[in-house]
Amino acid sequence: MSHHNTTHVRTISDDISDITSQNPELCYQCGKCSAGCPLRNYMDEAPNVVVRYIQLGLYEKALNSATIWLCAGCLTCSSRCPKNFDLAKFMDAVREIALRNGIKVKDKNILKFHKAFLRQIKNHGRSWEMGLVKDYKMTSFDLFSDVENSPKMLLDGKLNIFPHNVKGKDKIKSIFEKTEVKKCK
């Protein structure tokens, strides 16, 4: 009806709805997700609070939280949600939007790891652990962790010296080019 006509400005909440195919307003803030989250103790904001920020339009707060990067995607929340709200998917979308907006990531090593991992796939089609470790260490300067585990893995043949390149390597590169999230200017 005419008196309801308003011009709708697209919001981050709309973007999330598009990516996840679910409306953030579905969440009624019962907190069951936070109650069961195995990473809860390491987070700066409870997962339900991140959803609340989005519902309230406090996007900065949501996008800047460490919580979105600590979410391990274990799906405990999604599978127990009384509203069938897929919170893990929601978290994916919030991270994606944070990257798009060039938000500085609080737990930066987590993102560096993901980026190093994806570079392996982009370049070779499959993950190459040796390259991944090298890449991650070079970008994170986290040089000395886990060095004691590598010799055994090398000896057991678990760390391949050379990467396996899939035949469709170029296709994979093109998939990345078409779908990778780029920072908005």
């Binding site: 069961g36 809860r40 127990r80």
Partner: peptide, 17 residues
């Protein structure tokens, strides 16, 4: 809402927020 209940040493651990 409580996320989980499990038994440990005769107690029921109730995990909530």
């Amino acid at each position: 809402r409580v996320s989980r209940i499990y038994e440990e040493n005769g107690k029921y651990i109730v995990k909530g927020e």
